[in-house]
């Protein structure tokens, strides 16, 4: 793109635009860009500004400068923030060390075309297309007091394990549900990348007598670098932004505080305050790293 050979052609082409073409081009670019900027970028910037103000979200005249007060309130006076942070960190660790690696290994085995791989692939992929609302209902069937799991454990409704109500275990119960979907998603992404790997690499490794594990670690993983980055980024972003599944199970009540729910509680409905904006900004700041990593990966060729 930066080579000088394209320069003359570019200017020739630009001169070739008729007035009609110029109009068409500005409409082609203008309308989508306007919509995107007005509904995404400007609101994002405004939310960041609003997070430094006091406002009930009704009259613009009532906005007053608050400085860091909203953030101070969150950090020093809101214990739920730390509970949420803890849960999001558990979420991230669980996804990062269990669900995502499981999805990757699964993709690797299925790509080797082990017996039954087609059927298995479909089974793991099925939850990916379901909405989190449906997923919530399905798992409620398994885990509620008179559900399947309590039935298998031989507990009747009076001494059933409360999987969603017990604060010591409910985050892990939610993690199992979230992994149910996440593993299949990662598997699909990774499988696509694996298909692009030269099969002779693997054959050569097999002839050299490399074990499966060594082949995976020394040949497949390095060759999959771009996909690895995408998968890591997706894992982090999904862990930070988790919302739907917890909302479906608990509503807005503090059944299981996570950042996504705290933002929602403070911005939606009657109790809107700019503390919600501050929460949203915190959520955003935490995900800036992964966003930049993703963009760098995807735009490497364009920028250099």
């Amino acid at each position: 793109m930066s080579s000088s050979a394209t320069r003359p052609r570019r200017s020739r082409r630009r001169r070739a635009f008729s007035r009609g073409d110029r109009l068409t081009l500005s409409i082609f670019v203008g309308i989508p860009t306007l919509l995107h900027v007005v509904l995404v970028w400007i609101p994002a910037i405004l939310t960041i500004l609003l997070s430094f103000t006091y406002w009930t979200g009704i009259n613009f005249g009532d906005i007053t400068w608050a400085g860091l007060a909203n953030y101070d309130n969150i950090v020093t006076k809101t214990p739920a923030f730390y509970d949420a942070l803890r849960n999001n960190v558990i979420w991230l660790l669980w996804f990062g060390f269990l669900a995502t690696p499981a999805g990757v290994l699964l993709a690797y085995q299925i790509d080797r075309q082990i017996r039954g791989h087609k059927l298995y692939q479909s089974a793991y992929y099925l939850p990916v297309v379901l909405s989190l609302a449906v997923t919530g209902i399905i798992w409620n069937f398994m885990l509620r007091p008179d559900g399947f799991v309590n039935g298998v454990l031989g507990r009747d409704i009076d001494n059933a394990i409360s999987f969603f109500g017990n604060y010591d275990i409910n985050i892990y119960v939610i993690m199992v549900m979230a992994s149910w979907r996440h593993i299949g998603y990662i598997m699909l992404l990774y499988l696509a990348g694996l298909k692009a790997i030269d099969p002779t690499l693997r054959e050569a490794a097999a002839i050299d007598g490399a074990t499966e594990w060594a082949t995976f670690r020394k040949i497949i993983l390095p060759a999959m670098r771009p996909v690895n980055i995408i998968v890591i980024v997706i894992t982090i972003i999904e862990s930070l932004r988790a919302f739907d599944m917890v909302y479906v199970i608990y509503g807005t009540s503090a059944g299981l505080p996570i950042l996504g729910i705290l933002v929602f509680q403070n911005i939606a409905g009657e109790g809107a305050s700019m503390k919600g904006a501050a929460y949203a900004v915190i959520l955003f700041v935490l995900s800036i790293g992964p966003i930049i990593a993703y963009l760098r990966q995807q735009f490497r060729e364009d920028v250099s």
Binding site: M1, V29, T33, H36, V37, L39, V40, W41, I42, P43, A44, L46, T47, I48, L50, G57, I237, L240, R241, G260, V263, F264, I267, A268, A272, G276, A277, Y279, A280, V281, L283, F284, S287, I291, Y294, L295, Q298, F299, D302, V303
Partner: peptide
């Protein structure tokens, strides 16, 4: 061109909660 692509791709990655109040 690259700037435009970046604008759209990055916009897609912003959290929904960050844009909700002004929208």
């Amino acid at each position: 061109n690259v700037g435009m692509l970046l604008l759209f791709t990055a916009g897609n990655l912003l959290p929904a909660q960050l844009v909700f109040i002004p929208v």
